[in-house]
Nucleic acid binder design. Structure first.
Length: 584
RNA sequence: GCGCCCGUAGCUCAGCUGGAUAGAGCGACGGCCUCCUAAGCCGUAGGUCGCAGGUUCAAAUCCUGCCGGGCGCGCCA
């Protein structure tokens, strides 16, 4: 149950009754009415601004409205206290029984606790990673990869039907470069001395196996052919091999996509022309001359008529070219076709996860989606800022030219997938992130992954001890869900339950905002509360979870412990991190 | 020059889409292990929420203008 949605419905009923009784006017907009936890817990468990936002449209004093609403709410037996505070806030306090009832709810639901129907099964297309198929993934890619994957899982938890998609940029000049680089490795595999890899080609060793693969398949059959003949063949194989590499890298991070969409197929099947025709049919394509950007005029700039999309009609700053001077389509044109394809597949909600260098791309793509769908589809573009690498506080230098860039695989091998995933989500996506190898492998308290894992492991530890202390007792979740919880009454125990009860709301708000990092922060806070409760037992043994001479109290506390572990596991599942029962 | 993002404690960052007295970690200082994992907990210190206006019952949050940083700006993807 989302407690806040529950009381939103109750509040709407109360207001409806007041309208029916003539105490409030009809036609009030309840949209701005918020039911949320007060910032200061001393104010209660639930607060609403209803009286404040209704005062003006109702033409009444906010405190007077608040009094009427509060009087009606006092009849609810979930609430132990209803007060009007300040300018007209209504503060509510939940009864202990209502809060305690969340514990069996969690134990019964298991990690499905927090699942929401908010998405109503609506389909969402999430495109992420989409790294160029020219080599293994490097660290720069892994933030977007983890972010997209966690966002997809979060949306699923919130009740959406999610498709995870990867766009393969296999049509541009860079895959021709890849092909030439692979061809060189092919000649090398045939025994030729190729010397230094020329400037402009990819120098990495990862192309050597591709060269050997080509040799094994074709012998020397490609060696004396002209480039126009071997290039398409080599390119296809090289791209395929690079995608195998990338998929392996992604798997190391625990990421799988449902659809790998090839840019090349858009060109080969005429989908680009079709999409542009579609725009042309709406009168949104024209031939025109663009102004050069002021202050940063390219040397070789010359005014040139070109085919433009009227992006300015949909909020962009300038109209955008879809055709290059040699007649081929721009990357944008293909992307227009790609997004049109998504729309035609029935997706009304599109999300693109892109790197920071694509920031300037957002408006034109949103304009295109608006134009293509006639406003029926929306596109949210999540920009992931750069990850700066450190080792022990020192910036970690990378040289792409020397081929010494850090691969995603290096990072995962060194610190583990769970650490990489969690750390990538400890910043908002649009804030830069520092990643320090030394710190995240240290397993110290400033490493949030281990902090959260430790809480989960401690919970598991208590359960192990309990089984030994009470031989024959049934401490299964099913049994604990039926436990008498009246022993749970301390302020910090109730506070912990409140936090647990906030998980469904957090799922919904994080999903609505497309912000999976909120899950990571929530788990950190939850772990902190649990650690604090745990340590209370160090000062006062009667407050420990296991009281050997009091099974009833023990059962109640174990139920709470399992509820904490369950919600942590539920959250970690969204982040794609394995909960552990022991640390080392 | 234009667009987008960012600016919150010494450092790294949250702040629940406008709520009440702005929070956490690190760093500093001081406490807590014969006892469920001290990889933990508790306390102290630290703030003109970049600056100035505006919107309203209420602004770190929304609007405008500046200041500072990042990314981008036709034939790279």
């Amino acid at each position: 149950m989302n407690v806040f949605n529950h009381f939103t419905r109750i509040l709407h009923h109360v207001i409806g009754d007041l309208v029916a009784a003539g105490d409030l006017p009809e036609g009030l907009d309840l949209g701005p009415v918020a039911v949320e936890p007060p910032r200061d817990p001393a104010h209660g468990d639930i607060a609403t601004n209803a009286a404040l936002v209704l005062a003006r449209p109702a033409g009444q004093n906010p405190r007077a409205i608040a009094q009427m609403i509060a009087a009606a709410l006092e009849a609810r037996d979930e609430l132990s206290e209803v007060t009007v505070a300040g300018p007209g806030f209504i503060n509510m306090r939940l009864t202990q029984d209502f809060l305690r009832a969340r514990v069996p709810e969690i134990l019964t639901a298991g990690t499905a606790y927090g699942d929401s129907a908010m998405g109503r099964g609506e389909r969402v297309n999430v495109e992420y990673v989409s790294a160029n198929p020219t080599g293994p993934m490097h660290v720069g890619h892994c933030r977007g990869a983890v972010f997209g994957d966690a966002l997809a899982a979060l949306l699923e938890k919130a009740g959406y039907e999610v498709l995870r998609e990867y766009y393969i940029n296999d049509a541009g000049a860079q895959v021709d470069v890849l092909a030439r680089s692979a061809y060189l490795r092919y000649r090398e595999a045939l025994g030729e001395d190729i010397g230094e890899i020329p400037e402009g080609l990819y120098p990495g060793d990862y192309l050597k196996p591709v060269g050997e693969h080509l040799r094994d398949e074709f012998g020397d059959g490609l060696r004396d052919k002209p480039e126009e003949e071997w290039l398409p063949v080599v390119r296809n194989i090289a791209v395929h091999e690079m995608m195998r590499l990338i998929k392996g890298d992604l798997q190391a991070l625990g990421i799988t996509h449902d659809v790998f969409f090839s840019e090349r197929t858009l060109h080969e099947t005429g989908r680009v022309e079709a999409a542009l025709d579609h725009l042309k049919g709406k009168g949104l394509l024209y031939t025109g001359v663009l102004e050069p950007p002021k202050g940063k005029k390219p040397e070789d700039w010359e005014p040139r008529p070109q085919l433009l999309f009227k992006a300015t009609e949909f909020g962009d700053d300038v109209d955008r070219p879809v055709q290059k001077s040699d007649g081929s389509w721009t990357y944008f044109a293909a992307d227009v076709a790609y997004h049109w394809d998504k729309i035609e597949r029935g997706y009304k909600h599109l999300i693109d996860v892109l790197g920071a260098d694509h920031g300037g791309y957002v408006k034109r793509m949103q304009a295109a989606v608006k134009a293509l769908s006639g406003g029926a589809a929306d596109l949210d573009v999540k920009i992931c800022q750069l990850v700066k690498l450190y080792r022990g506080g020192e910036p970690y230098k990378m040289s792409k030219r020397a081929g010494s860039f850090v691969t995603l695989r290096d990072v995962v091998d060194e610190v583990g997938k769970d650490v990489v995933r969690f750390i990538m989500l400890t910043r908002k996506n649009d804030a830069p992130l520092d990643f320090d190898f030394a710190r995240v492998t240290e397993q110290s308290r400033d490493n949030p992954v281990f902090y959260v894992q430790y809480a989960h492991a401690r919970a598991a530890s208590v359960m192990r001890k309990a089984a030994g202390a009470f031989p024959g007792a049934d401490f299964s979740d099913k049994a604990l869900a039926g436990a008498d919880l009246s022993a749970l009454d301390a302020a910090d125990e109730m506070a912990l339950i409140r936090t647990l009860a906030g998980w469904p709301r957090l799922v919904e708000s994080a999903a609505a905002a497309h912000e999976p990092h909120r899950v990571a922060f929530y788990l950190y806070d939850l772990a902190h509360e649990f650690h604090a409760l745990w340590n209370r037992g160090n000062d006062d043994p009667s407050l420990r979870f296991l009281i050997e001479e009091d099974e009833a109290t023990t059962r109640a506390r174990l139920a709470l412990t399992r509820a904490v572990a369950t919600v942590i596991a539920s959250g970690l599942m969204v982040l794609g991190v394995e909960p552990v029962d022991e640390l080392n």
